[in-house]
């Protein structure tokens, strides 16, 4: 592991953060009355698209795990299709989990689903980019001593912090402050975004600080 790796990690993460900031400001040039709170669903879609795009581009440019031996077109296409299916499945999975956690079942379905989409964007998309549609690899990364590179380590941190942010985002809902952002699912989506951004910021720093202790065994 070299410092250049960490630097690359930091830059990619900064780009991801930048994409989220862009998703806040760019649509207001094209859409009237755009604001995060009032046209929340639009923002969710825009943010999701931006983050996915940036993640894909970064993956293609940086290639953190450039070890794909087969490079036939059909393989790539099936892989891409598989990734899409995985993404959709994760959206539905998160939706089910939200409902199990107490989200309304019938009302606000679209809101809940878009929330699932944005959380999938923050968690599943990086996993798909880095690890591919390979559940076993995912399970490995998210267990103790399972990471094999700083990329996986940062993936672990950002994903977990996204989840924690989402979880913490649910806490203000019952409070009687009557703020517009306390409405379901705005506080949770904001929490997820903040968690994701925090994870993006923290993970390079954490890896930098612990670079002495971190030794990765590559298979």
């Amino acid at each position: 592991m070299k410092d250049t790796d960490i630097k690359r990690l930091l830059y990619t993460h900064l780009l991801c953060i930048f994409s989220i900031i862009l998703s806040i400001f760019i649509p207001s040039f094209f859409l009237e009355n755009f604001s995060i709170l009032e046209t929340h669903l639009t923002w969710l879609c825009v943010c999701s698209v931006f983050v996915t795009a940036v993640n894909l581009v970064l993956y293609l440019v940086v290639k953190p795990n450039a070890s794909s031996k087969r490079s036939s077109l059909s393989y790539k296409v099936t892989r891409f299709l598989k990734c899409c299916i995985y993404f959709l499945m994760s959206c539905f999975f998160f939706h089910v989990i939200f409902v199990l956690y107490g989200a309304p079942l019938i009302e606000l379905v679209l809101e809940t689903f878009l929330f699932a989409v944005i959380l999938s964007t923050f968690t599943t998309v990086p996993c798909l980019c880095l690890l591919g549609p390979n559940i076993k690899a995912w399970l490995r990364v998210f267990s103790r001593n399972g990471v094999t590179s700083i990329w996986e380590n940062s993936l672990q941190i950002t994903t977990i912090s996204s989840f924690i942010g989402t979880w913490l985002g649910a806490f203000p809902i019952p409070l009687d402050w009557e703020r517009p952002w306390q409405v379901w699912p705005i506080s949770c989506t904001l929490g997820a975004t903040f968690g994701y951004v925090a994870g993006l910021v923290i993970s390079p720093l954490w890896i930098y600080w612990n670079r002495k202790q971190l030794t990765y065994k590559n298979n």
Partner: peptide, 21 residues
């Protein structure tokens, strides 16, 4: 449970060190 490796049999996880834990 998953984090501590109690959920999955270790053979699923490819890192040999993991079996020990």
């Amino acid at each position: 449970l998953h984090w501590e490796g109690k959920l999955l049999p270790p053979k699923l996880l490819t890192i040999p060190r993991f079996c020990l834990s």
